[in-house]
Design a protein around this nucleic acid. Sequence first.
DNA 1: CCAAAAATGGACCGGCAAGTCCAGCCCGAG
DNA 2: CTCGGGCTGGACTTGCCGGTCCATTTTTGG
Lengths: 205, 205
Amino acid sequence: MPNASTASTAKGRATQARIVEGAAQVLRERGIAFTTLDDVRARTSTSKSQLFHYFPGGKDELLLAVAEFEASRVLEDQQPHLDRLDSWESWYRWRDAVVERYELQNDQCPLGNLFLHIGRSEPGTRAIVVELMRQWQERIANGIRALRSRELIPASVDVDRSAAALLAGIQGGVSIMMSTGSSAHLRAALDTGIDQLRTATAHER
Amino acid sequence: MPNASTASTAKGRATQARIVEGAAQVLRERGIAFTTLDDVRARTSTSKSQLFHYFPGGKDELLLAVAEFEASRVLEDQQPHLDRLDSWESWYRWRDAVVERYELQNDQCPLGNLFLHIGRSEPGTRAIVVELMRQWQERIANGIRALRSRELIPASVDVDRSAAALLAGIQGGVSIMMSTGSSAHLRAALDTGIDQLRTATAHER
DNA sequence: CCAAAAATGGACCGGCAAGTCCAGCCCGAG
DNA sequence: CTCGGGCTGGACTTGCCGGTCCATTTTTGG
């Protein structure tokens, strides 16, 4: 139930999209606390009136739109790996994709920033994050089930708990990376998580 | 090398401490983005001039002091569990302490918020967080070594990687808890982390 | 008890950034 | 062509909040 676009023409919709993407860029670079609507205006070659025309709710509504935008990118960036976790090789490819993704975007989790900043003022943000986590975990769980159905791991593995732990490890690895600049923890979390699945198996490899 | 206190009398130091603690309170309640110096002033029964007297650097310096304050609490709250991780029972007690601690402080990681908000503007914040993470991980690693020296786990366990993964799981569990309000992920991360150590052992229990 | 230094109260300033407003422009429908 | 609705530009207003300043009170050292 995201914003039914405020624009009614193709040109309008293009402008609106440009604003969201540009805002996302600026927010990544400067950080939310230091980003003003004027920065967004400059970056997107728009005017104040356009910002408020397409986002009548002002800054909050714009930030919410950016949050949706960023959330949608998270899982997209892990495709197609995330939906094909059916062999050990595919799991490691996914791990590499995740690590690389977060190493590239310097040292930030735009969505996390947004969430913290808007916080409880905008209930919508929370819903976006919750839904993202749910989907992410679900896909990981599906991957574990795929391993199980191929008998690479025993049926006794607690799928949901393992998926939850793996997801937590990723989140924590990313947030530690934000402060230390090192992806070591993210890597460690992913590697031990996968290792745990592997050693739960009876037959090696 | 934290601020050599700006106060030179006992009364002054008391006021300064009151400001930091009061500020920490307000920040936890309202969130940084919505907290003004006036809120802090009101909460701590001080005047504007006092705030700037004790924190000449203004808001940034105050926030930095609060960050130090919060960081020091993190490990304190896990004592004495964190320094006595030498039996499986003690690990589970620690787990319970961690979960309880974060369940109590409603749904926030004050330090995380601070870090994100001050971000790269104040290099000091990063150092505080990095140091906290280092110490935290070191203590976990010590706990794992204790298990190993008691031969509860085999020598083949990669201590640092396991500690890093566990720490990442905690951080992620907490941050997921902030959005969802549920401690399930934190619990899952801790449980699977400990399980992994246990199943690495040759002899059961 | 008396300076001098520290601590305190609170009025005031100034800038910045969110949000408003309206005039003019583009563009497609008829 | 032309009319109308949406799109665009940007000047302007407004309130908030960080930071300054100085007068006053309290404490301390001798």
